[in-house]
Write a protein that binds this DNA or RNA. Structure first.
Lengths: 340, 340
DNA sequence: CTGAAAGCGCTTACAG
DNA sequence: CTGAAAGCGCTTACAG
């Protein structure tokens, strides 16, 4: 690494002069034109780049904590915005001046990011969508860094979770009340797992109230519009179909709704449909038809995560918090509770 | 600010000892239990927090440049993810190890963020959706920080723009070819401007080929599903309506499609519709009906922005780049070129 | 106009 | 087990 000293030495001036030139104060401080040029040339020749860390050390008063938002590479980025929004809203509300860094990691390999002295890089972290291997690693980790897990549980870390069980039970209950006895599952493939935690919760909720889930009507696909469309096509290819469909996310539901519409299958007349809603509510509110969702308050959860971090950082309190948010069932045309 | 020296002095030990304790190496370095406790107590009493900047200065080798993505608070966050994705993809492709900080600013007041010695905070910045006042400020700024403007133009900064004119002309041309003589405009309200740059370009494109745009059929609304729905409702309330609608974004188009569907107005049979597509293409590909869009390659643009920054940072080349991306007209059911 | 010196808040050999 | 000293790469009074 070439430093300001190298530049000074080679240009034959002092580091002060180099510093002045670098900072564009040459005019102001009346550095001689040729001195200035000499420095500039040397900088170019050596390909010198100032080290911002060192520079920043000067005005130590202005220190803003850096919060990392860890996000797996191969995960749906659809909700990332909402997380960021929530975090930023909360920071603003608290008048908490911080930097938010978005840091990606390969799912299951978060360890790689922690190797390089993470503790000295960030003041705190929110980790979204950790895979089982990531959790294993984190669990084994002994760090004082305030970390909040998003939608994952470890005892020793603060966690902010949506209550999948409740959301799943709401949907299952609605299906039951509407008289459905067999239900299909449109699952979204997460890295490293066949059934998402939400799908698992849903299937369990169904079993508990005697709704039949036939394994051959569980479809797994990428958590996307095309994924939902693909599942719907496969579904339509089968005989003796269930009368309602659970979708692991609204993207799957929207992709499926498209295919059903193409095929003349009417929602909800021919088949009813409900989904977990992870993105903004409007996306399923203005779809055709509007989709019933168990609405997960992603943004509120992110705010809560930020709040936890703020408290850790402010109060040096290293107490771990476990927050749970209940999804809200929003009934819309795709599956509405039948009267009587 | 309380420093490690304060802790050392008050605890009656050396800074080395404090440092060891802080870094959890007390065991390893065999610090006496009571010394350790004394330090810990003092840290708590003084509410001491290590300064990460100073800490980071140690392993200077590991320096990763920090790129800021500036984003106006009140702006649609819908595309933010795509920007982030594009930036991160490019960084990965280039094997460019950097931190990406998402930094929000109040539209029109980006100045506030620059006041506090921005140059010493980030190595480079991408600025999205700058308002006129922001541009004015940036133009007056004299900085060596590599900055890329996203979808805005200033001569002295690198810019990455989508070619709105071409996109607008594509849509206008399609309308013309399909025989539309009068067209409505669903505009999205940006901060500080009545007509978005895209709407302006569209209206101009129409005038150039003698398509009539009646001022009373220009609707402005929030760039959102409800915004589009509101515009559509107003539109339906009027007599003697145009036969085609331009939407400033797909969100407006989707909101409008919903209202039309509710009202029994068929797309494209009763009215044709096309929009600028800023988010992922799938969102309009799987809508009912699928919407014709001038697809803006947001992600590619973000990659290009990152690439520019990388080059600046690597080569110390301070040359300004101006890149323009042509939108691609994707014809779908909502407005397809009629044969013959 | 320019340089020597002190210092930003930490960590890390090294010595004892 | 613990401390004095040097140093990370810069900037900033201050002196000349």
């Amino acid at each position: 690494m070439v430093t300001i000293k190298d530049v000074a030495r080679i240009a034959g001036v002092s580091t002060s002069t180099v510093s002045i030139v670098i900072n564009g104060k040459a005019k102001e401080r009346k550095v001689a034109a040729k001195t200035c040029q000499k420095v500039l040339d040397t900088i170019k020749a050596l390909d010198y780049k100032p080290n911002l860390i060192a520079r920043r050390l000067q005005n130590a008063e202005e220190y803003r904590p850096t919060i990392a938002l860890f996000w797996p590479l191969d995960f749906r980025t659809y909700y990332l915005t909402r997380l960021l929004l929530g975090m930023q809203n909360e920071a603003r509300r608290l008048n908490f001046s911080c930097e938010i860094v978005v840091s990606t990691f390969e799912s299951g390999k978060i360890q790689a990011e922690f190797d390089s002295k993470l503790a000295s890089k960030y003041d705190a972290a929110i980790i979204g969508a950790a895979a089982p291997d990531d959790l294993k690693f984190l669990d084994s980790l002994d760090t004082t860094l305030p970390i909040v897990l998003f939608n994952r549980y470890l005892e020793n870390y603060s966690t902010v979770m949506s209550d999948h069980q409740t959301g799943a039970a709401q949907i299952a209950g609605l299906f039951k009340a509407n008289g459905h006895q067999r239900v299909a599952v449109f699952n979204s493939i997460y890295p490293e797992s066949i059934l998402s935690i939400r799908s698992q919760a849903f299937i369990q909720a169904c079993r508990a109230i005697n709704i039949e889930i036939d394994d051959s009507f569980i479809y797994s696909a990428d958590n996307s519009y095309p994924g939902g469309a693909a599942s719907a096509s496969q579904f339509l290819g089968k005989e003796n179909r269930p009368t309602a469909i659970y979708c692991d996310s609204e993207l799957l539901a929207l992709g499926a709704a498209y295919v059903f519409h193409q095929s003349g299958v009417r929602i909800p007349a021919d088949i009813e449909l409900a989904a977990f809603g992870l993105a903004e509510s409007a996306i399923t509110e203005y779809s055709i038809p509007p989709i019933t969702i168990a609405y997960v308050p992603t943004e509120d959860m992110a705010q809560a995560g930020m709040n936890i971090i703020y408290n850790h950082l402010q109060n040096q309190s290293s107490e771990v918090a476990h927050l749970v948010f209940k999804p809200e069932l929003i009934q819309r045309e795709s599956c509405r509770l039948k009267p009587e």
